[in-house]
Design a protein around this nucleic acid. Sequence first.
DNA 1: TAAATTTGGTTTATAATATAAACTACTTTA
DNA 2: TAAAGTAGTTTATATTATAAACCAAATTTA
Lengths: 96, 96
Amino acid sequence: MAGMNDLDPLIHSQLRLSIMSLLISVQSADFVYIKEKTGATAGNLSVQIDKLSSANYIEVIKSFKGKKPLTTCKITKVGITAFENYVNQMQQYLKP
Amino acid sequence: MAGMNDLDPLIHSQLRLSIMSLLISVQSADFVYIKEKTGATAGNLSVQIDKLSSANYIEVIKSFKGKKPLTTCKITKVGITAFENYVNQMQQYLKP
DNA sequence: TAAATTTGGTTTATAATATAAACTACTTTA
DNA sequence: TAAAGTAGTTTATATTATAAACCAAATTTA
């Protein structure tokens, strides 16, 4: 509770936190995998991936797996830093 | 990332998390004190205290200090449990 | 002592955010 | 070839957070 810095709102949303939490521990993950892991709807996931991508927290690579579209996500250096900051900030709330 | 349980939305909001985090470590705190510590506006604080109170996460006691109204907040047992659950859940996101 | 300001809030309106539903484009299967 | 499935995006709506406006009483200031 000392500093009480604001939590990065871009990471703080339930779904975006799940996405970042997942991507921090893997090389990359595709749309369907993230969807399954997080339990998000496709629409919501699409929107939140866009936001993280716009902030340059993640990189989105669009390709094809055979004839099906494949959206692959990777966390960026900026994203890693932002997530680490979020973790530190959040810890202050959890153990006051 | 294993279970990926949902975070209690009642606690997850930035300001309500701040309130709960503050109240978990003190006997009680009054409106003005919470307002200063969290940096919230009075309006927002009033609304969020109501929500936590409605969920029985905190107890709100209205009295007077001299001639001025005094709103005192205390975390309840329900609130303590909810906060502890939130902490455990959040930890899974922070260290995947 | 009357007017202005401060205190301690609540209520209401608006902005931001999350979510769901509908839609697109293409592919596979019956 | 019609129906169903895959992999998403777009748009509309519900939820949530925030700010602005307001209120009543007390206090300060001119």
